[in-house]
Every structure is written in structure tokens, then in C-alpha cells.
Amino acid sequence: MTSTMMRSRRALIALVVVLLAVIAALVLVFSTTGSGGETPAQPSVSAQQQPGTGPAATAFPAPGMAKSAPVSLDIPKIAARSSLVPLGLNPDSTVQVPPVETPLQAGWYENGPTPGELGPAVILGHVDGNKQAGIFYRLRELKPGDEVSVARKDGTTARFAVTKVDQVPKDHFPTDAVYGDTAGPELRLITCGGAFDRSAHSYLDNIIVYAHLMAG
């Protein structure tokens, strides 16, 4: 074989190698992208499960406590301390309140979560009654960050931090906000407030304190 023929053969082999490399690269590109263009990146597991990104999530809610009936309430900021009596529903499906003749007595709504459990526990008390100040006479003075403690029958104490204080008309009571599901253990304190309607012998508004369970 002449030197000219050998050079031609080497050139042909080199060309074939280059063509094979190009074909392999094209096959790889089409197999990873498909015919619709660039493949969208998939979210990582950590991004999908990051706390606080869901619509119903709150920022790092404290874990819930086991069910246990509350026995007493303590709010140091307003010097409010009381034992707690269970409250159910009236015949008209409204929530019961403690007897107005004993306005310093607070009660808890026994058909809802117990304080410390997942969900909104509800405690009610009078602003006044029987011609004296009630257990929640100063409830409107609470501010975000103030602490509320509830001692429980199992010997534990659920400690809450106030997040919000609202005054709302009774005929626009925010039922869902008070009794609706929550992402963590929460507490609602409810009393009367606003102007007093002498003809109806009732206050026109409610004072509602919202609080969440503090992490241990």
C-alpha cells in the first residue's frame, strides 16, 4: 500500500470517529430534553417540606400536648386567677358562660380542644356582674407577648403567648377565627366589651384574645 493510500485511510477513519461522536452527543441531548424543549427542574424534598410554606402553616408551631382537662387559669399581667368550670352549649346552640352571679369564675368550652391540645381551646369569663368587676375586667389590656398559663388535670401547665387582641361587635362574631382549625395549639379568651345596651342588659361587643402555645 502506498503512502498516499495510507494517509487517505487514516483521514477516513478520523472522519468516521468524529461523526460517531457527534451522533452520540445528539442522542444524549434528545434523550434528556425530549421534543418539548428544556426539562423543568423538579423541586427538592427539602423545598417541598420546608416548615411554614403551606397555606395553613404557622411559623414553627409548638407541638401539641395530650388531652387533659384544665383546672385553673393565671394571667399575671392583669392579675386574673381563677379555677375553671366546664361549659357546654345552651338549647339555642350558643356557648354557655359562667354564672353571672359569680363573675370572678372563668370556664372552658368542653366541646373543643383542651388547652395545650392541637386546635383552639376557648376560655370564657365575665367583664363584670353582680355589681362587681369580673375575672376578665382587664382583658382588653393584654398585649402581644403577654403570658397566659393554664394548669391541667394531668399535672402539666400549658403556657401561651398572646398574639392579638380584638374588639368585635357581637353580631359580627368571628366564629371561624375563634373556633376554626389551627396549625398548632392555640387559646382564645373571650369576654364582653364596648358600650352597654341598658335595654338588652348586655354589652354590644366582645373582647377576644388570641394566643399560641409556647415551645417548652
Score class of each variant (00 low, 15 high):
145 G>L: 10
72 S>C: 08
98 P>I: 00
200 A>Q: 14
5 M>T: 14
72 S>Q: 09
45 V>L: 13
90 N>Q: 13
140 R>C: 00
94 T>Q: 08
91 P>T: 07
27 V>R: 11
36 G>H: 10
94 T>L: 04
134 G>T: 02
188 R>V: 00
138 R>K: 12
70 P>Q: 02
212 H>N: 13
45 V>D: 08
50 Q>S: 13
132 Q>V: 11
89 L>G: 04
170 K>G: 15
25 A>D: 03
123 I>Q: 12
130 N>D: 15
154 D>L: 04
143 K>D: 04
145 G>Q: 08
63 P>K: 07
166 D>H: 00
125 G>I: 11
7 R>W: 07
108 W>L: 02
132 Q>L: 00
98 P>L: 00
20 L>F: 03
19 L>Y: 06
162 V>Y: 01
31 S>L: 10
100 V>M: 10
126 H>R: 11
118 L>R: 15
139 L>C: 01
213 L>A: 08
192 C>S: 04
75 I>R: 01
62 A>W: 07
16 V>H: 00
167 Q>C: 11
48 Q>C: 03
182 T>M: 11
205 D>H: 03
84 L>K: 09
133 A>V: 03
61 P>Y: 09
216 G>L: 09
165 V>C: 03
122 V>M: 03
73 L>H: 08
40 P>R: 01
160 F>W: 03
124 L>K: 05
30 F>A: 02
108 W>Q: 01
60 F>K: 13
60 F>W: 13
171 D>F: 01
170 K>D: 07
142 L>S: 12
